[in-house]
Write a protein that binds this DNA or RNA. Sequence first.
DNA 1: TTATAGTCTACTAAATCTATAGACAAAAAG
DNA 2: CTTTTTGTCTATAGATTTAGTAGACTATAA
Lengths: 144, 144
Amino acid sequence: MLSKKCKYAIHALVYLAERYQQGPVHIQDIAEEQHIPKKFLEAILLELRNAKILHSKKGKGGGYYLYRKPEDVNLMEIMRLMDGAIAMLPCVSLNYYEPCEECRDEKNCGIRDVFIGVRDETLRILSESTLAQILERQKGTRRV
Amino acid sequence: MLSKKCKYAIHALVYLAERYQQGPVHIQDIAEEQHIPKKFLEAILLELRNAKILHSKKGKGGGYYLYRKPEDVNLMEIMRLMDGAIAMLPCVSLNYYEPCEECRDEKNCGIRDVFIGVRDETLRILSESTLAQILERQKGTRRV
DNA sequence: TTATAGTCTACTAAATCTATAGACAAAAAG
DNA sequence: CTTTTTGTCTATAGATTTAGTAGACTATAA
């Protein structure tokens, strides 16, 4: 399951993608409209900023805005940033690999093979799923 | 990520599948060979027993054994039993569905669509992955 | 120079996961 | 029919992770 943090991040990013190139948006506004605790959201947006997905502007009239084009931000990257590994076992994770304690022969582990398959399919879908694509899919159904 | 409980369950089941129709195996033996805390393993095996995946025999010479054929036990069922939902969002879970708080229009949610895709692929792979198949894959590489 | 709004550090609370203790129940062996 | 073995069950403790909050600090625009 995704953490709330990750869900909040995705919703905030979709929200900002809808307002791409329309100037900075207040944290407060995102928090209220998406029902996200403001202080929690601050930390999330900051992380996304450090990852060069968002930019921010300080002072009056400031706020956050999408730094990249909506088609250049995919869910794989967001999920890794928020929740860490996407794989279901540490020993099949590409970005957060750790050997299994119990496994002695990783190369011939039948269990591992299964989760390599799951990982590959999951990454394929998540990397194809960009903010632009998500917006496209829910077009005509503007969310409040 | 799978919980330790779920990993332990899978390892214990593979271990028992290797000894299918060879009589009951002590909890103690499984615990030692698979490096699983015995008391924790007891609870896990009990759950698997209640789910009709394992049977047990009490008293001297007792223990646990696989109740079904190894080809009739798949990872989808085990994971649901141990960790609950397999889906990454409650609103796309088949067995543990819950609506998303933030989502107002579930039918047209672009985020949801992505995770329906992930869920379907994951379930497909996990339901095809049986104990028999796992054993088959690691054949010739007998684990200690 | 003041008000606004993001930045950063440090906590606290809640939930979940992992592991253990110990009493109890059933079955086999002698 | 008593002893030993081994699974059953309840309760709980400890550790870790997740979620959420507080408050001081900094940059910027008007």
